[in-house]
Amino acid sequence: MTFKTKRRWRTVRDYGLGWTLAFIYLCIVRGEGTIEQGSVQFEFWDSIITSLLMGPLFGAISGFSHILMMEYGYKQVSLLKLIIIRAVYVLLFLTAMILLAFAFYGCEMKLIAFAFEPGSFAIYFYILTVDIFMFGLMQVSMYFGGNNLAKLLTAKFYTPKEEERIFMF
């Protein structure tokens, strides 16, 4: 496998893992000791299983969109336009999530009423925040390099270290 292919799969893996963990965290926060405000009631363990199934799926979709955006638009588009494109993607992503949740839970209410249930805006805000965080983390990782992000977080990035190298002409 080439370096480019490995980087693509690593991006998809990171997004899949990130979205799965984010969905599980949301289930734990909303499922333990809280009462749903809307008419749709989610069972805790059903939500965990749904998170384990849908997290990698949405992570793969989000990862592939990130790859497409970085490979075909990163150099030609300004950062502001890149953020606008990502915002449009997040709106489409949220719409797809709402449609899948509506189909999965099969409520007797209309789609619009399901989408604007009390408490759903907190979930939408959470998803938006997670996507912005993961997008920003991937941008920082691309800027500093994949292995240098951990060094930056542990304050070893700016510490110089002596190396022995051989130069051949």
Rank of each mutant, 00 (worst) to 15 (best):
M1C: 12
K4Y: 15
T5R: 14
T5N: 13
K6D: 13
R7C: 05
R7Q: 12
R10D: 12
R10F: 14
G16R: 04
L17E: 10
T20M: 07
T20I: 03
A22D: 00
F23C: 03
Y25A: 14
Y25W: 08
Y25K: 06
C27P: 01
I28N: 05
I28V: 13
V29P: 04
R30W: 12
G31S: 07
G31C: 06
E32F: 14
E32Q: 11
E32G: 09
E32C: 12
G33I: 06
G33A: 05
T34P: 02
I35Q: 14
Q37V: 06
Q37W: 06
S39E: 14
V40M: 00
V40R: 00
Q41L: 03
Q41V: 06
E43K: 15
F44C: 03
W45P: 08
D46R: 01
D46T: 01
S47G: 04
I49A: 01
T50C: 04
S51E: 02
L52F: 00
L52S: 00
M54G: 10
G55A: 01
P56N: 11
P56K: 11
A60R: 08
I61H: 02
S62Q: 13
G63Q: 06
S65K: 07
H66P: 04
L68Q: 13
L68N: 11
M70W: 04
E71W: 03
E71R: 07
Y74P: 03
Q76N: 11
Q76R: 15
S78M: 02
S78G: 08
L79G: 07
L80Q: 07
L82P: 08
I83Y: 10
I83G: 09
I83K: 09
I84C: 10
I85R: 14
I85T: 15
R86E: 14
A87R: 04
Y89W: 14
V90S: 03
V90N: 04
L91P: 09
L91V: 15
L92Y: 10
A96H: 01
I98Q: 02
I98T: 07
L99Y: 02
L100A: 05
A101K: 00
F102V: 00
A103V: 15
F104W: 11
G106K: 09
G106D: 13
K110N: 12
K110T: 15
I112Q: 03
I112R: 03
I112W: 04
A115G: 00
F116A: 05
G119P: 00
G119M: 00
S120I: 11
S120V: 08
F121P: 06
A122I: 09
I123L: 03
Y124K: 03
Y126S: 15
I127W: 06
L128Q: 08
L128E: 08
T129M: 09
D131P: 01
D131Q: 05
I132G: 04
F133M: 11
M134H: 09
M134V: 11
M138I: 08
V140S: 13
M142N: 15
M142D: 14
G146V: 10
G146D: 13
G146R: 15
N147I: 12
N147D: 14
L149E: 03
K151F: 12
K151I: 07
L152K: 09
A155C: 12
A155P: 04
K156D: 12
Y158D: 13
T159C: 06
T159I: 11
T159R: 12
R165T: 09
I166R: 10
M168P: 09
